[in-house]
Design a protein around this nucleic acid. Structure first.
Lengths: 244, 244
DNA sequence: TATGGTTGTCTATATCAATAGACATTTTGA
DNA sequence: TCAAAATGTCTATTGATATAGACAACCATA
């Protein structure tokens, strides 16, 4: 399996670095044959650390629900996987996820009407000071939060989108209700940062976790911007795929 | 500016969390007016920590070359920015970077001929056991490493690609030399993880830093795979953009 | 040339992270 | 049923993190 040795002295606790590497190995399928993590003593030897340090790492993974330790038996792998998000002209949240998770949905947590900031106006190609509708949503799959998104819509065309979306639970269907038969993804930007405090609770992350941030613009078939979104994804639960 | 308060007790040192947030603020342009970071005492108050903790964070940023402290004056911002990588059918490393950095190049650090693993064979659509050429490259911009890539090429068509690439320094030109007039990006996968030990030195990262990993497949105009690559990017130096 | 604002350095203390060793408890299989 | 292998728990020690306070050194400017 992976490489040995871990860093010493640097602001990130050893047990956390080891937890990250074990999690990566699990997601990579390194332990699929047995369905179990190697014994603590073996991991301690492999990473060149004390067994107690490995135990701290495994305790963190157990806290995340990824493994479950059974005394006398070993540490079982409970959950694994990264959801795949295809990004293309036809990117939609629930669509690509449906076949990967038993339960996938996006819930509305807040909505408001406001004046577009300079940034939002620029992306949506609106005049400065134009009104927009803002929606805050959380995407979930299999009872775990996956993403937290803030979306802006031009208020003149989509004044009631919050109510409709809240009732239907689908942006695509809400658009159709409001006269947008179809729409396409114009551009997607992706960055990665450490999670900020506000995302920790919503995405059920522990501090120091990674989030992948996307800025996305959707437009109708005439090329008129209809939705600008900033989303934060729990990095250890997702993978993006761009098909050209 | 950003939100207050920082987490306590979690395997990630406070000073590191604060360093990450200050770095993010700098990249976001929060301090562009003055060109300086707020005074240590102000930051300590803002984050709710001791001034010494802020000093540790700033020392880390100084180590990265992002800020420079001047006694009696303040802490100046030295460098800032994220390189943008457009991902499209015509994705090439140096092309999109040229206009953003004064100096951009990709250097060969290792090359070998080997038998394709199951994974590589699958991506390149080769028969099991087929020979491939592997190249290890490091992409740099403005004297800082940005990415570390491992690429595989079918050995039957591209046996000499290592020599040619080493001499020319461009994959695109090496392909042309070997009869591939043009090629396109077929698929790109993106994930984010913490940096592994092997990447720390090559990418000049500190432990706990984030890397963005891409798996990419390039094919010639007949759709035949010509290159499969796994790349790691220093997440705080890059942004990916997908234009549809 | 003073003065206020800022970074640099030092001492002291409490808590967390990591190592080390020993032994108990539970499961599996010979 | 016994022994090996695995996780669970406890004590002790060391070094890194973080807080607290005080003061020195330096810069800009009124």
């Amino acid at each position: 399996m992976a490489g040995q040795k871990v860093q010493r002295q640097t602001g990130v606790a050893l047990w956390r670095q080891i937890a990250d590497r074990i999690r990566a190995s699990i997601n990579q399928g390194d332990f699929d044959e047995t369905g179990m993590v190697p014994p603590e003593t073996a991991l301690a030897l492999q990473f060149g650390v004390n067994r107690h340090t490995v135990r701290s790492a495994l305790a963190a993974l157990a806290q995340e629900g990824i493994v479950r330790a059974v005394q006398g038996r070993g540490t079982l792998i409970e959950r694994k996987e990264r959801l795949n998000f295809p990004i293309s002209k036809r990117t939609r949240f629930s669509q690509g996820i449906g076949d990967q998770a038993r339960e996938a949905r996006s819930v509305l947590v807040a909505a408001s009407r406001e004046i577009a900031t300079a940034e939002v106006a620029r992306w949506l190609k609106l005049a400065p000071g134009a009104a927009v509708v803002r929606l805050e949503t959380i995407g979930r799959a299999d009872h775990r939060p996956v993403s937290r998104a803030t979306s802006w819509f031009p208020a003149d065309r989509f004044a009631d989108i919050a109510e409709i979306y809240g009732a239907i639970g689908s942006i695509t269907k809400a658009f159709r209700e409001l006269g947008v038969a179809d729409y396409v993804r114009v551009v997607t930007e992706i960055t990665a940062t450490h999670a900020e405090e506000g995302d920790l609770a919503d995405l059920e992350l522990s501090p120091g976790a990674i989030v992948m941030n996307t800025r996305a613009l959707n437009a109708d078939l005439d090329g008129v911007p209809v939705q600008y979104s900033i989303s934060r994804f729990a990095a250890d639960r997702v993978r993006f795929t761009i098909e050209n």
